[in-house]
């Protein structure tokens, strides 16, 4: 792979995601940040199983040659499914928060306890 671009992308995605979670004030943007981290981790998993010039791991109709490792793909699929569930839950909670507070600014909804 040229210059390990996928790994650089992984690091970039995770760091951008963390930046969004920590420094963005809008709750929706924080949720986007979390999905960015998740994409970074998923990309990392997929990249681990990839070999240059490899084909999809379908054993029954293989033309021969190197196959990509299927296990990381299975892991990624599971992780994506979990990610969707988490995303749906987070967004529904954001909707509830907006109904209660009328704002999505993270500094206004938090506030120290009594």
């Amino acid at each position: 792979m040229i210059f390990n671009i996928p790994f650089i992308a992984v690091a970039a995605l995770i760091l951008i995601g963390l930046y969004a979670v920590i420094f963005k004030r809008n709750l929706i943007k924080m949720v986007i940040g979390i999905t960015l981290i998740e994409s970074g981790v998923n990309l990392f998993l997929i990249t681990l199983g990839y070999r240059e010039g490899s084909i999809a791991p379908i054993y029954t109709s293989s033309p021969g040659g190197i196959m990509a490792l299927p296990v990381p793909q299975a892991l990624t699929l599971t992780s994506i499914v979990i990610g969707v569930a988490v995303l749906a839950l987070m967004l529904s909670l954001v909707i509830h928060i907006y109904r209660h507070y009328g704002t999505l600014d993270v500094r206004k909804i938090g506030g120290p306890e009594e």
Binding site: L89, M90, L93, V94, H96, I97, H100, Y101, G110
Partner: peptide, 11 residues
Amino acid sequence: AKSVEAGFKYI
């Protein structure tokens, strides 16, 4: 409101 907020923080 506080419960929803706590749930969001937790997730």
